[in-house]
Write a protein that binds this DNA or RNA. Structure first.
Lengths: 194, 194
DNA sequence: CTCTAAACGGAATCGGATTCCTCTTCCATT
DNA sequence: AATGGAAGAGGAATCCGATTCCGTTTAGAG
């Protein structure tokens, strides 16, 4: 089965759906949460009813746009992974892509955040990302570049944090990625925590 | 000069303002962004007009609630600071308070996030927090528990990240605080980044 | 070529923030 | 203590944007 609620759209409907999503993504990227459903409809050259047929709520529309972005991140991360020599660099490349995407589409990220409450990958892509992250960590542990007790949950938190930093522009995300990687590095000798 | 736009409120007006803010904070803490202006007015026993007199927009109301929380964080952090023996622990106490506040008032945090776009301290309290953080870091550097190149900007990012993690519940924030502190610790010997 | 379910368009509806205007209350002054 | 007027309160009316509804149009199976 291809996808849960995806029967078989009439070809014109499928084309419309894609076009609406493309348009919405472009608008959100440009103007963020200010974009309204009527804008999307007008810009896409369809009626609001059509927008709602494909995306039952504004939230659904934003979710769909978010899902695409995660797919993008996953693609780039996988590609970078093949290039980078060690796991630490691969992880850096992954986090960097997360940051770049959120920084470039800051307006879109803002919309996603304000509509969904966070920037986490939910759908099927989320699962793939988790799996990918787990492999990366395992590789890092084996290579001795990542602390032994690091878990996917840790990585999730770090990814979320990197997304926040780059989306809001609180500070220099490159620096933050560096700090985060250092936090995930093996502790030499004693842990100073207590 | 006490505060920019704070002339002198009539005593009844001042009382009302406080009461409205108290009520709003309670409601947001309980129900998050679902709370509407009319709810606040009803619960506070005043007309909507009164709410708007004191807080010209919903956003302003949320901002005021957020400002209070930062003051709370600052207070607790300062107190903890006097108790903790070393800078690392003091920093941990600070970050822990940030997390606790965001975790406990998760609904309120969500409202703040979705209305303001981030959870950063803006007003005068923000400045105090920055100063406080700077002192803490300096102390840590002197004690050799914090990396020499750590800056207030770094701390800002970490605080923002901790807030995100605890607010969204992506993962265990205690663990995240630990990772973050490790990231801010002195690098023994070589930096593996390149 | 026909027929029907699927898709469309867009006016109407609904919900919630914000505005506006009238009535009330504080308090400086006499 | 009485009083004038500015500041404050209240809440109906307005505005704006998401969502719903339903009559019209079209793809595409038979």
């Amino acid at each position: 089965m291809p996808s849960p609620s995806a029967r078989k759209l009439r070809t014109d409907a499928a084309r419309n759906r894609d076009h609406v999503l493309d348009t919405a993504t472009a608008l959100f990227t440009e103007r963020g949460e200010a974009v309204q459903m009527a804008d999307v409809a007008r810009e896409a050259g369809v009626g609001v009813g059509t927008v709602y047929r494909h995306f039952p709520t504004r939230r659904a529309l934003v979710e769909a746009a978010a899902e695409r972005r995660f797919a993008d991140i996953l693609d780039h991360a996988r590609a970078a992974c093949r290039t980078e020599p060690d796991a630490r660099r691969a992880l850096a490349a992954f986090l960097t892509r997360v940051a770049e995407v959120h920084e470039q589409g800051r307006a879109l990220s803002g919309a996603i955040e304000s509509v969904l409450g966070d920037t986490e990958p939910r759908g099927p892509v989320g699962a793939e990302l988790t799996e990918f992250g787990a492999e990366l960590l395992e590789r890092g542990r084996v290579e001795g570049l990542i602390r032994d007790d690091a878990t996917v949950a840790d990585l999730y938190m770090v990814v979320g944090a990197v997304a926040t930093v780059s989306r809001t522009g609180i500070g220099d995300w490159r620096r933050f990625v560096e700090l985060s990687l250092d936090g995930l590095s093996p502790r030499e000798r004693s842990r100073l925590t207590d």
